[in-house]
C-alpha cells in the first residue's frame, strides 16, 4: 500500500471505523470520547506502520480487524460483556413507547454481547460476507453465521415487544 492508498483509506473509511468504534463503546463511559478517538487513531497508526505490507484492497479489512481486536480487549477489561443467551430477555424489555424503529434497534443492539454486536454491525453497516468477517475477527465462518443468526433472533424478540413497531 502506498502513501496515497493509505490516505485514500483515511478519506473513505475513517468515518466507518469511527462509527464502528462509537457504537461499541458505551456512551455512559466518561472517557468514551477519548477512547473512541484513541482506538481510531491506533487502528490507523498500526496500518501506517505496516502500510507497505498491507495489500491495497485490504485496507478496510485491516482497519476493522484492528479496531475489532482493540474493542474486544477493551470490553474484556471493562467486563461489560454479558451473554444474552444466558440471560432472561425480559430483563431488557421496557414499557416505553417508541416510534423510531432505528432507535429501538440501537437500544436492542446495546444489549447484545460485544462479539455478536460487532459482527452484526460489520454485516449490516459495512456489508461484509461471513468469510470476510471471519478473516477480520479470527472467528470461523460458521461461528460468524451463528452469531448473526442468534443476534437476529434477539433483535426480533426485542422489537417484537414494542407494540408500536408492528
Amino acid at each position: 500500500m502506498t502513501v496515497e492508498e493509505y490516505n485514500d483509506c483515511v478519506k473513505q473509511y475513517a468515518d466507518n471505523v469511527y462509527r464502528f468504534v462509537l457504537k461499541n463503546i458505551r456512551d455512559e463511559d466518561k472517557a468514551a470520547d477519548i477512547v473512541q478517538d484513541a482506538i481510531v487513531q491506533d487502528a490507523y497508526e498500526r496500518m501506517w506502520r505496516h502500510h507497505r505490507n498491507v495489500q491495497p484492497g485490504k485496507g478496510k479489512s485491516y482497519l476493522f480487524s484492528t479496531a475489532y481486536h482493540v474493542l474486544i480487549d477493551h470490553t474484556r477489561r471493562e467486563k461489560n460483556s454479558v451473554r444474552i443467551e444466558e440471560a432472561d430477555l425480559r430483563e431488557y424489555t421496557h414499557s416505553k413507547q417508541y416510534s423510531d424503529l432505528q432507535e429501538i434497534l440501537h437500544q436492542a443492539l446495546e444489549q447484545l454481547p460485544s462479539d455478536q454486536k460487532m459482527v452484526v454491525m460489520m454485516r449490516d453497516y459495512e456489508g461484509y460476507s461471513y468469510q470476510e468477517i471471519g478473516e477480520m475477527t479470527g472467528l470461523s465462518e460458521s461461528q460468524v453465521k451463528v452469531y448473526i443468526y442468534r443476534a437476529r433472533v434477539f433483535l426480533r424478540k426485542y422489537i417484537g415487544k414494542m407494540e408500536v413497531v408492528v
Binding site: Y18, Q102, H106, D124, Y125
Partner: peptide, 15 residues
C-alpha cells in the same frame, strides 16, 4: 416481517 426490521441502517457519522 419483524425479522426484516432487524437489519441495521447505517448512520451517517463523520469523524
Amino acid at each position: 416481517r419483524e425479522y426484516r426490521l432487524t437489519r441495521l441502517a447505517p448512520e451517517l457519522i463523520e469523524y
